[in-house]
């Protein structure tokens, strides 16, 4: 268990940076910059600009996202903001509003 987990009742207001996988079940406002994967789980709220290797959204994300490898919006997820990633997966049922940039 070397990962970082932000639990469902936790609110972080500020900046999170890290070199390990980050899982968010609670609320994060500000900025997120991680070298590995970021998971925004169902029920989580993220209002932040995000930079990560892979981003998986099952909850609610507001902000611009840069995923160096892959961005995935799961069913039931909601995302508002610009998405920049070479691979973007939007599942059936996901909500998304913003620009998509796949570097084409």
């Amino acid at each position: 268990m070397a990962n970082t987990v932000i639990g469902s009742s936790i609110v972080v207001d500020g900046e999170i940076t890290g070199e390990e996988p980050l899982t968010i079940l609670g609320t994060v406002k500000g900025k997120i910059s991680v070298a590995q994967s970021l998971a925004v789980e169902a029920g989580a709220t993220v209002e932040a600009d995000v930079e990560a290797q892979t981003v998986t959204v099952s909850g609610r994300l507001t902000g611009n996202v840069v995923a160096r490898e892959r961005l995935e919006l799961k069913p039931e997820s909601k995302m508002v903001g610009d998405a920049k990633s070479p691979r973007i997966v939007i599942a059936d049922g996901a909500g998304f509003k913003g620009n998509v940039d796949m570097d084409v």
Binding site: T4, V11, V12, E20
Partner: peptide, 13 residues
């Protein structure tokens, strides 16, 4: 809730 060894948070928790 765990803040892992390679993670920094600046702000309020």
């Amino acid at each position: 809730t765990v803040i892992g060894p390679e993670t920094q948070i600046s702000g309020e928790v």
